[in-house]
Design a protein around this nucleic acid. Structure first.
Length: 582
DNA sequence: CTTTCTCTAAAGTGCACTGTGGCCAGTGC
């Protein structure tokens, strides 16, 4: 297969990394990284151009990179790269996944101790040999070990957003099979958990063995763990295990309910069934004794809940966190849906670290059927992200006002993702923030503060009348970095008191604030804004993940700022904060 | 390695934090 632009970019990035380990001129390594970015973002078929050696005049691609790109595009490889790679062992790359290890330290570990894998790093941390190196003290060893433990803990876990695409495409293939009557993905995927350890497919069919066979032969299957008459397990190339159960059409609702879980929800539901005189498993209701009347017919999963005297409980809520009681009292809320969104906030453009211009982001948002799009590029402290200085922000505001004249059905909303500094003050003066329609205040530095200080820092930011919302409240990066220490309840109380919104950040790596807090937040009167934190037009799709997690947090459309129409949101933003509180 | 107020050589994102080692280097945003 021909080499793709992403392959080429990845090779350039790898060269940069290797040069860094070698201690090359930092500007040289940067040139390779810039080159990778240029290749990724090039408007047109850069691979074809490279093949024809037609790369003159592309900014950031000089003579040397032109030749290398040409070689890559025409032969599929690069001798320079292969030689460079040959100088280092394979496992060295995984060391960069450890927090606190950069090129300099990796190089020292490799050259002085021959460390070339996480395994050997762990050993040298425990036996004291790493501590003997200059620059490695007691504390840094502790941190390295902590980061290794974190990585091991997450080894067989996957983020929802990373596997949704492949899950849906496998689901579609199973649905296309002529012998499948009904197909669903059950398990934690159906419950919209942010982290998954497997996928559970469920098929209703009269020919189960044919379906399990078909499943085990899907192109996605890199290995087959088991394949029997009604059950099969495969492993995907990324390590994710996928299980399939084939059941009869009659059993399907019970199996779907059973395999969707959660375990805790099912335990509670089964004990409820017992009170009606039925035991319940993945195949159906069974009367406890001969005197018990049989259960009414069940055709759909919702029938199971109805028969037990409950409203249907959306899968997202099935965590045994009060949903059964609510269903009994007919108080299951009408949960928010993607279609309820009228616009969205917190989006980046090329002005800071986004990939698309204001116009492109606006057009993409219009294509999504939105009435408005809030822009929030980084503030000046985010230097590495090309954060805006006041003059550039003022220019952007003007530019947005100019663009807004060109639409009558859509508006851009001016904003900033302003850094919350260490002491809780903001990266911009109030007078500048006052010129914006809204502000997302976020923490991007000093993650290590103790809980009390961190909480106070955020509260101070929320007390600023110009802070509309707090971005990614806990700073967690799923499967990578724990949240910083913060007292969520104190923050929520302050949010309710000051009329500050807490964002639900939809980036699949974040999904922050966590769904477990939203029900409580909602009851305190805290509103949210479901924000994609999009750095490109494609990332507007992140909203779908945010909606899944908002549903999991019991949120309704009235709890969400960006369910408001354009005119409502405009007048809401003009209100002083204390008038906004619900 | 690329760009440039270039013409052959120089300049090329900044800052805070952390931990270590003795006043600064490395990392991460």
């Amino acid at each position: 297969m021909a080499i793709s632009r992403d392959d080429i970019a990845a090779i350039l990035d790898e060269i940069a990394l290797l040069l860094e380990i070698k201690g090359e001129n930092p500007f040289k390594t940067r040139a390779y990284r810039n080159g990778a970015e240029t290749v990724r973002n090039f408007d047109g078929d850069i691979v074809a151009k490279a093949k024809e050696n037609d790369l003159d005049g592309i900014k950031g691609i000089g003579k040397a990179l032109q030749e290398k790109l040409h070689e890559l595009a025409s032969t599929g490889k690069l001798v320079f790269h292969e030689n460079l790679r040959g100088e280092f062992p394979e496992g060295l790359f995984e060391l960069f996944g450890i927090q606190g290890l950069g090129p300099k330290k990796v190089r020292a570990l490799y050259e002085k101790l021959g460390i070339d894998s996480i395994e050997s790093l762990k050993k040298s941390c425990t036996d004291g040999s790493a501590a003997a190196l200059p620059g490695f003290g007691k504390k840094s060893i502790e941190k390295l070990l902590e980061s290794i433990t974190l990585k091991e803990k997450f080894a067989d876990l996957f983020r929802l957003g990373d596997i949704a695409h492949i899950a849906e495409s496998m689901l579609e293939k199973l649905r296309q099979h002529p012998d499948s009557l009904r197909v669903e993905i059950a398990g934690s995927y159906r419950r919209s958990k942010e982290i998954l350890h497997d996928l559970d497919f469920l098929v209703a069919t009269t020919t189960p063995a044919i379906i399990t066979q078909y499943f085990s032969e899907l192109p996605e299957a890199s290995s087959v763990i088991a394949c029997g008459d009604t059950k099969a397990s495969i492993r995907l190339a990324n390590g994710l295990q996928c299980d399939l159960r084939a059941v009869s059409n009659q059993q399907f609702p019970f199996a779907l309910q059973y395999f969707s879980g959660s375990k805790e929800h099912n335990v509670a539901l089964r004990s409820r069934a017992l009170k009606h005189g039925w035991s319940m498993n993945e195949y159906g209701f069974t009367p406890k004794d001969k005197s018990t009347p049989g259960a009414p017919a069940v055709k759909e999963e919702a029938d199971i809940y109805r028969v037990l005297g409950l409203d249907r409980i959306p899968p997202e809520l099935r965590e045994n966190r009060g949903e059964i009681e609510a269903a009994e009292k007919r108080e299951i809320p009408r949960l928010i849906e993607l279609e309820n969104l009228r616009g969205t906030f917190h989006n980046h453009t090329t002005a800071s670290d986004g990939k698309n211009s204001l116009e492109e982001m606006a057009e993409a948002a219009r294509d999504h059927g939105m009435q408005y799009l809030g822009i929030a590029d980084h503030s000046k402290s985010q230097f590495q992200a090309n954060g805006l200085y006041p003059e550039r922000l003022l220019k952007q505001i003007e530019e947005i006002h100019r663009l807004n004249q060109t639409w009558d059905d859509f508006q851009l909303i001016t904003g900033s993702e302003v850094d919350i500094l260490k002491d809780g003050t903001l990266d911009f003066e109030d007078s500048l923030l006052g010129k914006l329609d809204y502000t997302v205040a976020s923490i991007h530095s000093s993650f290590q503060l103790p809980e009390k200080e961190m909480t106070q820092r955020i509260i101070r930011a929320m007390e600023n009348p110009h802070v509309t919302m707090i971005g990614h409240l806990t700073g967690r990066l799923l499967l990578k970095r724990n949240s910083y220490q913060v007292n969520i309840d104190k923050v929520l109380d302050c949010a309710a008191r000051t009329g500050t919104i807490i964002e639900l950040n939809c980036n699949p790596k974040r999904l922050d604030m966590d769904w477990r807090h939203w029900h409580r937040a909602r009851d305190k009167g805290v509103m949210t804004s479901i924000n994609p934190d999009a750095h490109s037009t494609e990332q507007l799709h992140y909203l779908a993940f945010g909606i899944r997690l908002a549903r999991k947090g019991w949120l309704r459309r009235e709890d969400v700022l960006n369910c408001m129409s354009l005119t409502d949101v405009q007048s809401w933003l003009k209100l002083p904060k204390d008038k906004r509180a619900q």
